[in-house]
Amino acid sequence: MKYIKFLLLGILFGMVMAKAEIISWYRIFEMFNFDAFHMYGVIGSAVILGIIGVQLLKKTKAKSLYGEALHLNPKTMGVYRYLLGGILFGLGWALVGACPGPMFVLLGYGYVPILVVLLGAVMGTFLYGLLRSKLPH
């Protein structure tokens, strides 16, 4: 039963990704060409509300439903991994027009070729696991 809430949140997330056309390859192409405000509005409004909300949660020392500290997961400082990893991610994001969330949503949308993209994403993750000790972080 404790998983039902995550299923429902996933459904909401999937519907938002689909209905706001965030899963559309064309919207990502448009974003990287600065041709429309849509994607900037989506990410920008989420981040602005996110910043305000997280600051309030920190100020009030809010706890989770289970009385624990919130999992805000501060990132360890570094440059290489974020910049190089980010660039590789961006190359793929623009080519297939989907980041990990939308890949799964598109599966529900019935686009069979996205399975190849998902397979690639799992393979890429595996490759990182193999090469991790040799990469600058």
Binding site: I87, L88, L95, C99, I114, V116, G120, V122, G124
Partner: peptide, 22 residues
Amino acid sequence: SVLLVGGMLVGFGARYAGGCTS
């Protein structure tokens, strides 16, 4: 190749960078 390489870049890059868009 386009589908597979695109996916691999996303998967590799996301883990290297320690996260994706979300």
